[in-house]
Every structure is written in structure tokens, then in C-alpha cells.
Design a protein around this nucleic acid. Structure first.
Lengths: 143, 143
DNA sequence: CAGAATCCGATTTGATACTG
DNA sequence: CAGTATCAAATCGGATTCTG
């Protein structure tokens, strides 16, 4: 073992020029996969995805469930996720306006992985908090 | 079904006042779990965790492997992850200085989940890119 | 080598209106 | 209701300089 360097596509010999559909490489600064990752792991993107995993939601409902998000950020987040094909936006021409947001099949896949992560964090928060206490801010005045 | 609202601890009746070690609630704006989530899902945090999953790394190695990160951001990211107990920092008092970074058991757990996510994104990049093409920027001039 | 500290412009974010 | 537009505040983030 001395070849496997990159985590993602390690030991995969993708070098066969543009072979398949094209896989991303997060370790290439210019790869668009970085952008996708950022949409998915963005502050509000994560929470929106996981909430939508529970079912369809309206804008105002998301606003309430994802506590703390501003209208602007929520709209912006939803647009990014919609553009990437994770979220479906359905507008009903009624008065008052009604817009439903839901996950696409693609979205359900990522959201599933994201949820595992968020669940882990919620579940293990105490362990992290313990670690923080244990952690010395600087290096102690003495050892 | 009409009770399950919150994704994370849904249908769990945590309401028994401060029962166990305390679980986080990402849907509570003030819960520290939000901070942990942000460290883990931060721009560079994600990449650092996945790289460290491959094994111990020195500062300069991380700098190279996580292409695009600046010294400042890398240091900052590592500090956050170290504080949360995900990363272990070992200093060797030699000249020139040597510092090794590795994952703690706790870190290996999160990093594992994070890797599943990043792998999915790399793997499915083409699907997302397709969705983006398909996506109409505004609402077309006509339908 | 491994950072800490500083300067400072580029983004991001968030209230607060305003619109269809 | 579901956003968009706007403006100021807060952060981010990188290049540079300086130690141990």
C-alpha cells in the first residue's frame, strides 16, 4: 500500500480518459463536486434536507421548523438544492399562494446520508461536550 | 401519525426532564449541537476528516492533500475539530517541529458518516450536473 | 516545519421593507 | 403566503509577516 492517497476515488484508476459518466473529485479544487458538497453541507441545507425527509413542506413550515433561518437564507438554500435536483418545488396558482417543497429521488438519497450524520451528532453531543471541557484552551501554564 | 414533527429525535419522548446524558436538538437554535454540526460540515472540516480517515497526517501534508485550503483556515479547522474531540494533535519537540494529526475514536465515527456522504457526492456528480442543465434559471419566457 | 498575528477586501447574513 | 430587493453588520478567508 502506497498508492492510495486520495480518500474518495482511491485505488480506482480513473485515469482512463473520461471513461464513464464522470465521477467527481472533491480533492480537485475546481471540481464542481465541491459546490454540490457545499450546498448539501451548508448551514441551512443540512437542516432543510433532513426536515424534507419527513415529508413535503411549505415555505412557511420550513421557516418554522428550521428555527433561526431567515426568509432570505431559506429561499436561497432551497434554490440551490432545487437547482442541484435534490428538491422539487411545486407552485399552486391559488390565492393565497401555495408552494410545496419536497425531495426528489436524488434528494432522498443524499438526505438519507445527511440524516445519519445529524442523528449521530445529536446522539453523541454529550461526548463532544465532554471533550470540550477536557480540552485545554491554550497549553496549560504548566504540565 | 401526527406527532412526529422533528426529524432528529422524533417519536422519542425525550420530555422526561434531563433524563440521560443529554441528547442534542439541532432544531433548537441555541443547542450546541448546531456548532458541532458546523464544525463537521464546514468547508474544510469535511475534507480534513475524510483525509484523516486514511491515516495520520502532518500539517503540511494536510495542506497539500486538502487542495485549496490556506494555512489559516486549516489551522482554524483543525483547532475546532480538536476541541470537539474529533482530532488528536501530537507535538514532537524536535527540530524542525513536527505535529501529527489523527482521528480519535470519536472522530473516526463521524468521519465515517461524512465519508459516506462525500463518496455519494463524488459518485453521483453526473446526476447532479444533469439536473442543473435541465433546470431553468428563471421561469421560462413561456411555458 | 508549524503555526500565530495582522491587515483588509470579498462574501455572507440578517433585519427590514416591498410586491404579486 | 411566498418570496424579492436593499442596506448595513458580521464573517470569512487569503496574503503577508513574524516566531520558536
Amino acid at each position: 500500500m502506497a498508492e492510495r492517497k486520495r480518500p474518495g476515488h482511491l485505488a480506482r484508476a480513473v485515469t482512463k480518459q473520461a471513461e464513464r459518466k464522470e465521477r467527481g473529485d472533491l480533492y480537485a479544487p475546481l471540481c464542481p463536486s465541491r459546490g454540490v458538497l457545499e450546498h448539501v453541507t451548508s448551514r441551512w441545507g443540512v437542516l432543510v434536507l433532513v426536515v424534507l425527509l419527513q415529508g413535503t413542506r411549505r415555505f412557511s413550515e420550513l421557516r418554522r421548523e428550521v428555527a433561526g433561518v431567515s426568509e432570505k437564507m431559506l429561499a436561497q438554500t432551497l434554490q440551490a438544492l432545487e437547482q442541484d435536483g435534490f428538491v422539487l418545488r411545486e407552485v399552486y396558482p391559488v390565492i393565497p399562494p401555495r408552494v410545496d417543497y419536497s425531495l426528489t429521488p436524488l434528494g432522498r438519497e443524499v438526505a438519507g446520508h445527511v440524516e445519519v450524520l445529524t442523528d449521530w451528532i445529536e446522539e453523541n453531543l454529550s461526548r463532544v461536550l465532554e471533550a470540550r471541557k477536557r480540552h485545554v484552551p491554550k497549553r496549560g501554564t504548566e504540565e
